[in-house]
Each structure stands twice: as C-alpha cells, then as structure tokens.
Simulated scan of single mutants.
Amino acid sequence: MKFTKSTGILLLFMAVPFFSFAQDWHVGAFLGITNYSGDLTQQRVDMKYTRPALGLLVRKDINRYLTIRGAFTWGIATGADSTNSSKDLLQRNLSFRSNVFEGSLIGEVNFFELEEKGFTPYVFVGIGGFGFDPTAKDQSGNRVRLRPLGTEGQGLPQYPTRQPYDLFAISIPFGAGVKAILNDQWTLGFEIGFRPTLTDYLDDVSTNYVDQNTLLAYRGQKAVDMAWRGDEVSGKVTPGAYPADGAIRGSDKHKDWYAFSGFTITYRLGGGSGWGKQKATRCPILRP
C-alpha cells in the first residue's frame, strides 16, 4: 500500500480515539505507612507500631467525578502487648509481625472537577484481597511462623470447631484524600485509608487458650511457648501460671483492621491536560 498524504490524514483521525482513551488512564505509585488494629492494641490505632507501605496503582477516569483504581500494596502489620497499659495484656505478653500484600479495586468520588479547580478532595471505597502470615520472635530472637503452631488449638481433634485459618482474606478499603495537578501529566495526592477485614487472625489471636498438655503433645514445646509468654515477663517459669483451658486469650467480637495512609503520584498516559482537551479531541469543531 502506497503511503500518501491522504492516508496519513486518515490514520491520524483513526488514532484520535485511542489517544483520547489513553488520556483517561494514569499509572503511579504509593508511598506511606501501615497501621494495625486488633487484639494486641487497646486503642483503635497504636502509632507506636507504624511501619512503611509501598504500592503501584492504575487509575481510569470514568468521568469528571468518578475514578476507578486498581492497586497492589505492600505493608507491615505489627503489634505487641508490651506497650499496653492493661496489667492482663502485659502479662499475656504476645506480639506479632506480618507482611501484608493487598490487591484492591477501588472507586474514587471526586468532589470537584479536577481540571477546573486544580485540586479536589475525594472519598473512596472498594474491595481488596490480602495475604498475610503472622510471625513472632522467640526468646532466642528467631522469628517463628505462628499459624503452623496452632496456638489456639486450630486443627486439634479436641477442638473440632477450630480449624487452621486461611492466610488470604478479604478487606474493605475505604477512606478519604485530596489530589492536586502538578502539571499536564503529573498528579500528587494524599489519603488516609482503613481496611476492616474478614479475618480475626491477622495477629494470630482470636479466642481462648487451650489445654497446655494437649498443645504440647500435638504441637510441641514451641507452640506452648508462643501461645502464652507471661513467663518471659518475670524471667522465670512459674508452675501453674499457664492459663487454664478456655481462659480468654483474645476476642472474636471484632475482626482485625489495618490501614494504609500516604502519598500517591500518578502520570497521565498519552499526555495532554485531561478532560478539557479530551472534550475538544472527542468533539472537534471544524472551521473553514
């Protein structure tokens, strides 16, 4: 096929919809912090256990006020009884740390037209799935995976209703933020996002203690050591101090939460300056 001026003009007009389509898409990154709320915190969020978070994201502008976002975010959830003020929690002396790997699909509702105001507050809500694997350091400083130990009798025949918990769970991201245009391509934002989850085992703590001898027989001394760590507070083993079978270890009344808060930076694919230019591109006015 011979390339002519007419062919070039035809190809240019054919490419216009794809160029406009690209302008609706943004790719970017997230840099922020992770916080945890669960059985090892007395307050909703304990800032002493703030840890880093990183992520990648893709945004699609549906219209001026609605944006859909897909993201993959990594963070660290952690907590410990040692910083609580409750005497009972200090005596329990549990702790945990877990990487959190979240994939999410989120809808953002913008309050203003971003291209006109240059900035806009927004709220968001969506659905997420995340992987986790709680660990804790033993007295030798070695990090130990807690799920295989069955610290609350999960998987033992004496406790048939307690099954090993999944290491993948659902979260419900929601929150609010603000974003501002830096130039035609770049947008900077800041948001605070909460994640109520459908698991109570992000921290490996949920219900009651199980019989010490049963746990020892089926899972070994390490499971007993990590299920209750009160002896480490006094530095000596106290006979009979281990909680009785059925004693309260945690509470399954509320599921665990985590939070991702921080900055987003996104780049608009295809260049241009957003909806203003897209409108002109999609509905051109031909003048003689």
Rank of each mutant, 00 (worst) to 15 (best):
L286I: 15
T50N: 11
P148M: 04
F132A: 01
V109S: 08
L10K: 12
K60R: 15
L167E: 06
F96A: 03
F260E: 04
F111N: 02
L215T: 00
S206M: 07
S98A: 09
G38A: 09
F21Q: 10
Y36A: 02
T120A: 05
R195S: 07
A180W: 04
T161L: 14
Q43G: 12
I192S: 06
S86L: 11
G8R: 09
G107W: 00
P148Q: 05
F3S: 11
E116L: 10
D225T: 05
Q91R: 14
L286A: 11
S82V: 13
F260V: 01
F21V: 00
G141E: 05
Q278V: 11
R162Y: 13
S82N: 13
G230T: 09
R44L: 12
A259R: 08
P173G: 06
Q185R: 12
E232M: 10
A77K: 00
F119E: 05
G189H: 02
T214D: 12
W228K: 01
F19G: 11
Q212M: 12
G79R: 00
P134F: 05
S85R: 09
F111K: 08
V237E: 14
I248C: 06
T151N: 08
P164C: 09
T281F: 09
I127N: 04
L105F: 13
V27I: 15
G55Q: 04
Y201K: 07
D24R: 15
S95H: 11
A176F: 14
T266W: 01
G70F: 07
T41R: 00
L215M: 05
F21I: 02
D256K: 01
D138E: 05
V109F: 11
P121Y: 03
R268A: 04
F21C: 04
F168N: 08
K255R: 12
F260W: 06
D88S: 14
T73S: 15
L90H: 06
G240I: 06
V205E: 02
S171H: 02
E113M: 06
V224D: 07
N35C: 06
G107D: 03
D200E: 13
I170M: 14
E102M: 14
Y159V: 03
G32K: 02
R268M: 08
G103A: 13
T41W: 03
F119C: 08
L54T: 08
L167N: 09
P121K: 02
V178R: 01
Y218R: 13
V205K: 00
E108D: 12
S82F: 13
P284Q: 09
F101T: 01
Q43E: 15
K279G: 10
L202H: 01
G79A: 15
Y218W: 11
M14S: 10
P288D: 12
Y209P: 00
R97H: 03
F19N: 10
D252G: 14
A169M: 07
F112I: 01
W186Q: 06
K236G: 05
G235M: 06
G193W: 00
